[in-house]
């Protein structure tokens, strides 16, 4: 069973192979981590899967459907959602409102209909209830009505996770969610990841914090210089000579 399949995917930026012929598969109910040194092409890979960049070559399949040419905004309703490495929260909106934007695809009121306001109230109530569930799940109650971009950095990352969850994804791509978290928060994040997986969501995780990666991942893909260096379970990766060489000099495991 495969939910997402990345097949011979490449991205070239003016001669530079940012992602070079990478393939892997993601199963439902698993946490797959993508690790590698800075500049290995991890975030570019995310941008390819979520269609922010066009592929130079290769294909990406989601539930056996080729999404290599699907427009980015259509992915959320298909079941792919993500967070961003450089936080991309919406300015001027509170934490609650930011998370409610994640429920955009669950609403039906159109532009003109909204202006006359017949259904706004009931629809908003429903989205607000959903958003509050995510807030409780992630523990953002104290920041609900604060402007999202003014709350602590670590919490902003969690708002991104909550917003992504609001789309009810089948595959969730998280780009360094543990960056800027203290050790207590990291522990909470790990629990959260396992819980999300428990709800039947596949997670693709980019993370530098090896402790988190090794403890939650079912499988790991290692990237270096845009290429896939290795793939396997955490223990396989820890013993892989090539991986150790790529990380030489860095104390990772």
């Amino acid at each position: 069973m495969t939910i997402l399949k990345v097949q011979n995917v490449s991205k070239v930026f003016g001669g530079l192979h940012a992602v070079d012929n990478v393939s892997f598969e993601v199963k439902p109910n698993e946490i797959l981590s993508v690790i590698g040194p800075n500049g290995a092409g991890k975030t570019t890979l995310f941008n390819l899967i979520t269609r922010i960049y066009d592929l130079s070559s290769g294909n990406i399949y989601f539930q056996n459907q080729d999404i290599s040419k699907v427009e980015a905004y259509k992915l959320a309703s298909m079941g792919i959602s993500r967070t961003f490495q450089n936080i991309e929260l919406f300015e001027g909106l509170t934490t609650l409102e930011n998370i409610m934007v994640g429920g955009y695809i669950h609403g039906k009121c159109g532009f003109v209909e909204s202006m006359f306001g017949f259904r706004n109230r009931s629809e908003d109530k429903r989205l607000e209830k959903m958003a509050k569930e995510k807030i409780n799940l992630i523990g953002l109650q104290n920041y609900e009505h604060s402007e999202a971009l003014e709350i602590p950095y670590g919490r902003q990352r969690m708002v991104e996770v909550a917003r992504a969850l609001m789309t009810s994804p089948k595959v969730l791509l998280l780009d360094e969610p543990a960056a800027g978290l203290n050790s207590v928060e990291s522990e909470e994040l790990k629990k959260l990841l396992l819980r999300i997986r428990g709800d039947g969501v596949a997670i693709i995780l980019i993370e530098h914090d090896m402790e988190t990666v090794m403890s939650v991942s079912d499988r790991i893909v290692v990237m270096n210089h845009g290429q896939k260096l290795a793939e396997g379970t955490p223990s396989e990766i820890q013993q892989n000579q090539e991986v150790i060489k790529a990380y030489l000099g860095e104390e990772v495991f």
């Binding site: 930026f13 003016g14 941008n47 960049y53 961003f84 490495q85 450089n86 991309e88």
Partner: peptide, 8 residues
């Protein structure tokens, strides 16, 4: 001109 790409 050349194409430029926004980093995210």
């Amino acid at each position: 001109g050349h194409k430029s790409i926004k980093k995210v």
